[in-house]
Design a protein around this nucleic acid. Structure first.
Lengths: 215, 215
DNA sequence: TTTAAATGTATATAATTTTTTCAAATACTA
DNA sequence: TAGTATTTGAAAAAATTATATACATTTAAA
């Protein structure tokens, strides 16, 4: 797939939401859904939903709609959720522990093999049977355990150093919670969770509410 | 400001990043910056940066560029960071504690007055001098303490109930970490941090790397 | 004093994203 | 079974967003 045909990032970012709603429908035992109903649920327009899905194939049927289980399954495959990933977390503070404790990630195939920290008080402790190791052992651990995804929950001062170790160790993707833009090789995928930026955006809209509500 | 003149959301979401980089420059003691240099730092084009800033006024000077301190200050004002906000967190698990422990939010003017939970084992404990209270006291606490922002770090099953309490109590904005889309009145600002969606997006790009790298 | 650098602003162009439209297929009802 | 309503997929149109260009004006620096 060349640049012309690749699916735009805005579309990709909507897929997890579709996936989530379809999962909820599945749980409720609903096995058929139309783009119009999905529109009501998700807030996206029906035509946008149809177009988004058609980037990956025709999963629906005219006059019928979509089979919930099938579409959920296909979206899971598209998002790569049919595989499992070995991950590690560097930064075993509250945020690292919060991520480690969230069982939802493991259910989706993201296995957290270990936490790492440089604080001696934390090293050796366990979070849900996941051991906290010395960050000095990070590189070796990654290489020996086929770790694909590295999670960064350190203060921003250490984030780039950890990213460097990740890249050196052969990690393929970084999930970064530190408020910094990491510099890495082009072929490393970075996904940022910038809590600061999210909170500041909320603050902006609070102060400019009238411009955006009901317009 | 009507719909025609309001600033687009894509612009708004870039402001916190400008603000962050300017803060870093300020710390380094750099007091002058050009759009071209900002472009190199942020990855946005110089003309886009100039256009973004000009949505709010002409903060620069021909032949000179921008005064770092002044621009940082102005962006802070635009983002509403020149005020302080009273906030509360419902959900005192790891994630709630992580947010409560992050001093950066307080430095930016977001004061966390209290955490709330329904788990008796947590109620009464303190995180950095912030008390964990029974969620039954939430509504009264909000009304008595002029709380403007409500943070939700509960499991998704409870998120909507908490949102309802928030709205009923007069909260103006919700920062939601639960993987759910909350239904609230139109004039309530919601900012979501959907970690699941972020991780799944990372997963997608890992599996379709070749389409997006160097194209 | 002259030259280089830089913004602000308008305009043009390109790229991207969303909406509209409608033929074709299916489901449903009488 | 026939007729009607529903629904997708796909193409085209429209709208939005991003980028580039141009240049008068201002400042800095040589």
């Amino acid at each position: 797939m060349d640049k012309e045909n690749r699916v735009s990032i805005t579309v990709i970012r909507r897929l997890p939401k579709y996936y989530r709603y379809l999962g909820e429908l599945l749980k409720k035992g609903i096995n058929r859904i139309s783009s119009q109903e999905l529109s009501k649920m998700t807030g996206f327009t029906a035509s946008q939903i149809r177009q988004d899905l058609n980037n990956f194939g025709g999963f629906g049927q005219q006059g019928y709609g979509y089979n919930v289980e099938e579409l959920h399954h296909q979206l899971g495959k598209i998002l790569g959720l049919d595989k499992t990933y070995n991950t590690v977390i560097v930064g075993a503070g509250n945020l690292g522990q919060a991520v480690a404790n969230y069982k939802g990630f493991e259910d989706a195939g993201f296995k957290i093999l270990s936490l790492f920290d440089k604080n001696p008080k934390l090293i050796g402790l366990k979070i849900r049977d996941i051991e906290i190791r010395d960050v000095d052992e990070l590189e070796e651990f990654i290489k020996e355990n086929d770790v694909e995804i590295g999670i960064i929950t350190t203060p921003k001062e250490n984030a780039q150093d950890i990213a460097d170790i990740y890249v050196r160790s052969g990690i393929k993707g970084i999930w970064n919670f530190a408020p910094a833009d990491l510099k890495v090789d082009d072929d490393i995928i970075i996904e940022n969770v910038h809590l600061n930026e999210s909170l500041f955006t909320l603050s902006y809209f609070l102060n400019n509410k009238s411009d955006y509500v009901r317009n």
